[in-house]
Every structure is written in C-alpha cells, then in structure tokens.
Design a protein around this nucleic acid. Structure first.
Lengths: 342, 342
DNA sequence: CTGAAAGCGCTAACAC
DNA sequence: GTGTTAGCGCTTTCAG
C-alpha cells in the first residue's frame, strides 16, 4: 500500500513491464538473461529498467529460488584470523553473482547467527564456530549447503576445510625443543573449547603438544594452562606465569590472540629475552616488527577461498562430501629463541 | 516442488496449521504474538511449532513487511576501528528481534554492498564508507532508514553519527606542539580520501592539522605526506621519511592502521626515541605495551551503539533527521614524547 | 517468441 | 476468538 512513514515504494517488475509495454514474464526473462527473448524486446526492457532504476527484490526471488547470497557465520568480529578467512572468501566470490553476508555470533551463545542465515534463505552457509554439534549441523546441511571450517570430524552431509592442527602444533614443539627448551607451557582456552569432542582444533593442538613433549622425553614437564578467550585474560594469565620461579622458558599459545595477550605481559615484565613465545594462525600482526611473533601459518585466506569454492560446487549440484586439509607451516620470528639459561 | 539435489523442503506455516488443526492466520498470530488468540490455541500451535521445528521464512515475511534485519556496510573487514563499531552495534541490538548482517565492500568500488543490503529488504542500513555521494544516499534513504557514520555533511533524509575530527586532530597538535615538536608531518591516505567534499573525516583532520600548525606559528613547516590505505604502504612511506636528514620529529597519522604501519618502520630503524608517533581511533592494539601508541579515541563502540539506536527510532517512526557528534579524547602513550634534540 | 496464470510462505483485512 | 482471502514481487510452466 502507501508508504510507511514517508518511505517510497520500490519499483516492481510490473512497473517495468508496463513501461516497456510487455508482460512481467518477459521482463523476468530479460533480467535473468534467460533464453527466448527477441533482441528488440530485450532492448525495450533494458531501457525501461534503466529508466526506472529497477532492482529485483531478493526476498521475492528467494521465495521461488535462489537468493544469491552466501552466509558466513563468525563467532567474533574482532578476530584477525577470521578476518583473513573472510578476505579469502570475498576474493573467491569475486565477480560471481553471489553476495557475502556476515552474521556475527559475538557473545550470544547458541546457533542464533547460523539460524538467522538459514531463515534468510541464503544459498549456502560457511560456519566457523567450532562449538556446534555435529548432529545439528547435519540437520542444517539437509536443507542448505554447508561448509564447516576448522572441524575435524567428517560428515557425509557437509564439507569441511581444516588445517592440520596436529602437524602444526608438532612443528611448534619441534622448534622449541630444538632450541633447547624443556619447560614449555601450553596456553589454551578454557576447557569448553578443548572439550568439544575430539574435533576441535584446539583439542588437537593440545594433544599434539602433549605428544610432542612426551616424544622429546619431556612428558613429565608438560603443563597446560587455561585462560579466557580474550587478549586481556591471556595477559593476566601470563603475568602469573612470569611471576613463578623458575619461570617456564617457553609458551606455546593456542592462537595468536592469546599469544599477543601473553606478549603484552612479557613486554611489561621486560622478559622478552627470557621467555620464548609461539602463537598459531600467523595473523598479520604477528609479522609486525614490534611483536615479531613466531606463529603457525595455516593459510586463512586459502581456507576462505576453498570454503567458497566448495560451497559453489554444492550449489552447482555436487552431493558427495569433500574434506580439505591445509598443511600449516611455521613462521619463525624473534619471539622465540634459545632459552636464556640452560 | 521436490527437493533440489537432495535438499529437504522446509516446514511451512501451513504444515504447522494442519498439525495444530487451525488456520494459517492463527499460527501467524501466535508466532508474532499478536492479540486475539485463546490460550488453548496458543498452546496447540506452540506445540506444533516445536514438534515440527518450524522456522518462519524471513523472505516471505520481508515480502509483506519487515525482515528484522539490520544491514551494516563496511568498507574493509580487517579494519580494527570498524570492528569496534560492529561490537557496539551488536551490543545495542542486544535482545531486540533484529539480526545484524554485515556486507563487506572490500575492494569492489561502488555501492554494491549497500545495494545488496537494500535489495535484501533490510529494515535499516548503517553505512560506514565515506566515499558515497550524498545524493545517492538521499535516494536510498527515501526507501529505507539510513544512518551514515563518519560523515559531516548533514542531510534531511538520513541520520549521522560522527566524531569531532577537528577537535580530535586539534588535540593531537596541541599535544605534539606542547611537547616541543616543530617538524610535525601529517601522514594521510591519498587524496581520493581527503578530497570527498568537505565532509570526510580525513579532510577535517588534515585541515585541523594545517590550522593547528599555523596557530602554533609553524605554518611554514606544515607538511602533508600521502600514502596508501594499508599498513604496508604506510610502513614504506615512513621508511622514506626516516631516511631524510633532518628527520621529522613527529608524525601524526590519519588513523591507527597507518600509524601502526609507520611504527613498523620506526621499530625497524630503531628510531623509537627520536620520532614521536600519534594515531587516530585508539584501536585496541594501540594500547598494547609493545606498541603503546598515542591515539585519539573517538568511541567506536559508542558510534555503533548510537547508530543502531537511531536506526531503531527511525524504524519506529521518527522522520526528522538527527545528527550526533562524539567528542574525542587523546590517549597519550609512549609513542609520543619530547623531541630528542631541540 | 510471447503472455497468462499459478504459486513460493507469509501477513493483514475482513468476515464469521 | 477464529478462519478466509487477497495479495507482497517474482519465476515458471504452459498455451498461444
């Protein structure tokens, strides 16, 4: 009806049809460039579209078919690693007709953001939060193509893209042990994150840490310290570690955000030369010379690109699941070095 | 009809109505908790909703009325300042029934992301990119509530939230001049950004820089250096500045990302004590002890919160425009100090 | 090659 | 208080 609070009604396909003196169906064909339209009609319709500045309603389209929207659920907008994934995804979407929509799940627990995406009839969903039940995800995947990032358990219903967390953490351990460290602490998020079945990346990193310590004959020295998921809490936890005597000589953080928080405590205590620090994700910040954080690169942008690629394949009709594993590599920087005292 | 490539058809309101033995309208009323439903019916319907795991289609709803979606257009997903805005926005959306959807405009120029949002029938749009023509925005605002962030020119059609860039940059100049600096360079993005009418934040910061220099009797020493929008390019530009003799003693960067890039060059050259650096935005990184960057805080989260507040008011019916200005404050840290040699 | 008509899932009038 | 009905804007058979 009339405009709500002075809002203008949008131009519809009917307006265009009338202006061009053709049927709605004809307009529809032209804008989708479907076959079966004469050049003359195409020209008339296009002119009318231009003239009226017509834009098809995605909602109406979605009701019939596709919304040309890819949804990406992210647990935390501020997370640099996720940001890299998004950049890769955008790149892969490039000039397809699909638009990326990011639904932030910040704070609110549960599946709200993912459901919001599904409710909006997106054509495919990339899920990043690892705290999602596999069952639930399978149900979701029954109605819309899904690719899950960073989850190791495989499903018949959805695709996955993961880094090889075991290998990555293994490289860290080799590096630190190789430098001569023995008192190596693993700093990771509280157990909620490492307890999600065996599939969570952080669980695997934790296992690999324990295995690596054991393999180096340091099993008895292995020590896992939990902290919150923010930089601030990692900083606070690291302060406590630095107050201990003897101090651990190296800390392997579960991800860069924790590592960067820990680094803050190290800088405060001016203990840079005494304790080595290694992160995971090789966030762009890690390379900053003021931080120079040794970190495992697991190719965030590549993950994003791959995820989109798989989704587009699914949308295109593929039904067999695919699972892609990315090989990580360690970027060694100044935050790690030989222990000060042997 | 039947499922596309094995995809399950979603439960519709009709399924629920049948299961509950009532009409579709009744179901609709219950799920929107509109008035005029008996407790008994409400119970039956709710049971059926649970049973079938029914979720209303947002697309279908949008066709009639609201999509309960707020769109936020961001020019760059990796930008920490934008991230803060998003966090504020999420907070303000809290437990309203509105869902935030972020449309990243990364890279692609033009209004693609904003249009994508509008096409998807969002109930309101927050626009962050300052490179948008006022005209175009006014047209958009005629069909959907819009609030524009960081733009100084006022419109009758849309709301705005801005920091007082002139005051913020003024504080920086006072700070640096007060410390005794005379060779103060302003590092800002290439002219495309500072040339968008008089409304762009960066134009105002630039003006305030020039005015501040002049007011301090340093007009002749004023020097504006342009760089790209990435950390890397700021770093490269800063390297060149550091290679000059005499070096500038202070650099005021147009925003933290540039400042952080510049800081990388400073750290590389080990010139930390010789050149002061000030940023703008007071990004969370600025507070990190390894960077400790002096920066202007313009309340990103507050901007996000305010923007959402205004949008909800518009959606609620307000039609007169509102424009909100946030007072910035300077966070002084170790990156700025008195010049080494006078 | 073109147009008429049915219907996607939902809401809002309006009858009953 | 409850159900019927007419669309919202678009795509898609299916006749012509």
């Amino acid at each position: 009806m009339s405009q709500v609070s002075g809002r203008r009604r949008a131009v519809t396909i009917l307006d265009v049809a009338r202006a061009a003196g053709v049927s709605r169906a004809a307009v529809s064909k032209v804008i989708r460039d479907a076959s079966g339209v004469s050049p003359a009609m195409r020209a008339r319709v296009n002119a009318a579209v231009q003239e009226l500045d017509y834009r098809p309603s995605v909602a109406a389209r979605a009701l019939r078919g596709a919304s040309y929207t890819i949804g990406l659920e992210v647990p935390q907008v501020g997370n640099r690693f996720l940001t890299q994934i998004v950049e890769g995804a955008l790149e892969a979407l490039g000039d397809t007709r699909y638009q990326l929509m990011i639904a932030p799940a910040d704070g609110r627990e549960g599946y709200g953001a993912i459901e919001a995406l599904a409710d909006r009839q997106v054509d495919g969903i990339v899920v990043v939060s690892p705290r999602v039940e596999a069952r639930w995800l399978e149900r979701l995947a029954a109605s819309v193509p899904v690719v899950m990032l960073g989850r190791h358990d495989r499903s018949e219903r959805y695709d996955t893209v993961v880094g090889d967390d075991t290998a990555g953490a293994g490289q860290v351990l080799e590096h630190l042990v190789g430098l001569g460290h023995r008192h190596i602490v693993h700093l990771t998020e509280d157990s909620a994150v490492t307890a999600i079945g065996t599939g969570s990346p952080h669980t695997l990193r934790l296992r690999a840490y324990e295995d690596g310590m054991a393999a180096a004959g340091l099993g008895a020295l292995a020590r896992v310290v939990r902290t919150g998921q923010t930089e601030k809490s990692a900083q606070a936890t690291m302060r406590e570690l630095l107050a201990e005597r003897p101090r651990p000589t190296a800390v392997f953080a579960g991800h860069d955000q924790l590592a960067i928080g820990a680094l803050a405590a190290v800088v405060e205590a001016d203990a840079g030369r005494e304790v080595s620090l290694v992160g995971y994700d090789n966030t762009d910040l890690a390379a900053h010379p003021a931080l120079s954080l040794t970190s495992v690169d697991q190719g965030g942008p590549e993950m994003g690109r791959r995820a989109i690629g798989m989704l587009l394949e699914r949308i295109g009709g593929r039904t067999e699941p695919r699972h892609h594993v990315i090989r990580p590599s360690l970027a060694v920087r100044r935050s790690s070095g030989p222990p000060a005292h042997d």
